[in-house]
């Protein structure tokens, strides 16, 4: 790839008068020796899986094998259709869709890791709800996934994208930044605005720990995906309105690395701290262990 950070990515876009997704498709093609069409085909398949997962989570049984989670996406979807929601129907819809995909994941359904399975609801939640709202064709959204991928590529190589390494900020936080930047591009914002959206979003999740109850990708991962979709919309709106990330986005990514590196092991996916070690978290874990034997 010709870019190592968001600044270089933005400069490439400006010097070549291209969008972030166009640069990503071109560089991916050069890196792998595959044509742009071949790469688009793979990403199109991924987007179809995301749409199916949204649909499945809203219509089918999603109780997880542990029995701890399932059905929240349907609750939120029914609520938003039934009455006026506090966050507004659009945000509520993105939230329901994100919950749906995360519940499909927890119940061993088919998803796409974006960037991980634990954070797989956020990008589909934002993308699929926006597609319905704005009437975009699939190709527009597939291109948007390359924009999200370019942002994630920078975050992953300068910081981290796994909870075991950097806490939940690295998984859910990264996914929100990727979704926010991509939403800006999808709506016709500039690469510079997209990059600001990433910094704005990441600042809001810095320090978020990874503390899954029983080590399972369920509590609190699923609801954090729901919140994440709403945060991504908010960050995209701030950036499109002209709000800038006063601390440059690349520097915010560096902070994520600093904070994650300082995070104790008990807050990095080991289930030895945080929500996992609350009295209720421990009780759930004990029950799961007893059932296993």
């Amino acid at each position: 790839m010709r870019f190592r950070n968001l600044q270089e990515l933005m400069e490439l876009c400006e010097s070549e008068s291209k969008t972030i997704s166009e640069i990503m498709i071109q560089d991916q093609s050069e890196e792998t020796g595959q044509s742009a069409a071949e790469i688009m085909t793979v990403m199109t398949e991924y987007y179809q899986i995301m749409k199916s997962a949204v649909h499945k989570g809203l219509t089918e049984e999603t109780k997880s094998p542990s029995g701890l989670t399932g059905g929240d996406a349907k609750r939120v979807e029914a609520y938003r259709k039934r009455e006026e929601s506090s966050a507004g129907a659009i945000a509520c819809q993105a939230m329901a869709y994100a919950l749906a995909v995360s519940e499909v994941n927890a119940s061993m359904g088919r998803i796409v890791a974006t960037p991980t399975a634990g954070s797989c609801g956020i990008i589909p939640g934002v993308f699929v709800s926006a597609q319905e709202r704005f009437g975009w064709d699939d190709e527009h959204l597939v291109r948007g996934l390359f924009c999200a991928g370019a942002i994630g590529y920078v975050i992953a190589n300068n910081s981290f994208i796994s909870g075991a390494e950097g806490g939940c900020q690295a998984e859910v936080g990264s996914a929100i930044g990727m979704a926010a930047g991509a939403m800006v591009e999808l709506r016709g914002g500039t690469p510079e605005q997209a990059v600001h959206a990433v910094g704005l979003a990441l600042k809001n999740t810095l320090g978020l720990i990874c503390d899954p109850v029983g080590g399972l990708v369920e509590i609190p991962c699923i609801v954090r995906n729901g919140f994440g979709a709403v945060n991504a919309l908010a960050a995209a709106d701030m950036a499109l309105a002209g709000v800038r990330s006063a601390i440059p986005s690349d520097e915010v990514i560096d902070v994520m690395l600093e904070v994650g590196s300082a995070m104790p092991s008990r807050h990095r996916e080991t289930a030895q701290g945080g929500l996992a070690q609350t009295p209720t978290g421990r009780k759930i874990m004990k029950e799961l262990r007893a059932r296993k034997k």
């Binding site: 088919r110 390359f146 991928g149 992953a156």
Partner: peptide, 22 residues
């Protein structure tokens, strides 16, 4: 660079629930 291309960020397509454990 630990992650070499866009499909290590968007992808893999997989059965849940965990990219590392599943």
């Amino acid at each position: 660079m630990r992650f070499k291309n866009v499909f290590s960020i968007i992808g893999p397509a997989m059965i849940g629930p965990s990219s590392s454990h599943t």
